[in-house]
């Protein structure tokens, strides 16, 4: 179909899953300005939920739905608890949630402990069918993000990300909006996690550790915090780059770390901010040219 090799299909599939996962964090960190350093926990909750449900004989669709619901519910629960603390406290608390999650998973025999869960049932759609499903979910997530950004809620998120106290003063119910962002973001992460589980068919606690949380954060940050297309681009590129070029896999973390640092140090707006700067530069040159009567400057 479409003349894609099995390898290319699996590349596109993991790309699509990374895009959904990155956009889910973008709802919380990008739109609403709440830094999460433990987002992989919710990815993991989705993966484990769907894996256990389908292994118990439930159909694939129920697994996905269950993953979304469980991840979202735990997200709300943790949101209620942790959104009481702000800024740096929140970043550390979410990091703690991430460590707590893998700590529990490692010791919980029902879900395989350190060994993880293997021979997870496939989607039953075939490799290319699954790819189209992932891409479909990916497109829906992009459309949802774009819609949300331009909605009343999106503006409220923006106000909270910008200055929480001012948002509260003008009458926004800040904690409700934060919780809404957290619920949607964690539920979507659950979906991405479930898709991941049925794609690789094997999960263990280490697949959802701190490195994964940082990887997804780096996708959001390098793409440009809050920018939907920037994040999609960064997630797509950063997820397949190591698979594509074996050389990079060895230095994957050095590349991520270096990029994260360089991005923040030199262009905190990420790729999206960089593009904006360049566009502004070009348009200001054009208007200067107009002013000076078309002569080159």
């Amino acid at each position: 179909m479409l003349g894609l090799s099995g390898y290319e299909i699996s590349l596109i599939t993991s790309m699509g899953i990374a895009v959904i996962f990155a956009l889910s964090l973008n709802l919380i960190t990008g739109f609403c300005g709440q830094i999460s350093l433990g987002h992989a926990a919710f990815y993991g909750i989705g993966a484990y939920t769907s894996a256990m449900l389908t292994k118990a004989g439930m159909p694939f669709g129920v697994g996905l739905l269950g993953a979304v619901i469980v991840a979202g519910l735990i997200g709300i629960f943790i949101g209620i608890a942790s959104l009481r603390v702000r800024h740096d406290f929140l970043a550390i608390t979410t990091m703690g949630v991430g460590f707590l999650f893998i700590g529990i998973m490692r010791q919980w025999d029902l879900v395989g402990g350190e060994m993880g869960v293997s021979s997870i049932p496939g989607s039953g759609l075939g490799k290319s069918g699954f790819m189209f499903l992932v891409l479909g979910f990916g497109v829906l997530t992009v459309l949802f993000s774009l819609h949300l950004k331009r909605s009343w809620m999106g503006y409220a998120f923006d106000a909270i990300a910008d200055d929480e106290d001012t948002a509260r003063v003008v009458g926004l119910n800040v904690s409700h909006y934060k919780l809404a962002a957290f619920a949607m973001g964690t539920a979507l992460a659950g979906l991405a996690g479930a898709l991941y589980a049925h794609n690789v068919r094997f999960i263990d606690p280490e697949s959802f550790g701190f490195v994964e949380s940082i990887t997804v954060l780096s996708m959001v940050v390098i793409g440009g915090i809050g920018s939907v297309f920037g994040v999609v681009f960064a997630a797509a590129v950063l997820s397949v780059l190591p698979l594509w070029i074996q050389f990079i896999d060895e230095y994957k973390l050095l590349l991520y770390g270096g990029l994260l640092f360089a991005m923040m140090r030199f262009s905190p707006g990420g790729l999206a901010g960089l593009v904006k700067q360049i566009l502004r530069h070009i348009s200001s040159r054009k208007s200067l040219q107009k002013l000076s009567g078309g002569t080159k400057i």
């Binding site: 800024h87 780096s218 973390l253 050095l254 994260l260 360089a262 923040m264």
Partner: peptide
Amino acid sequence: PILDKPPYVALIASIGLFIAMEE
């Protein structure tokens, strides 16, 4: 150079630096 940026900028830069140092 990034002290006047929002707090997450320095936090993420620092995480990036730490990962790069380990590598």
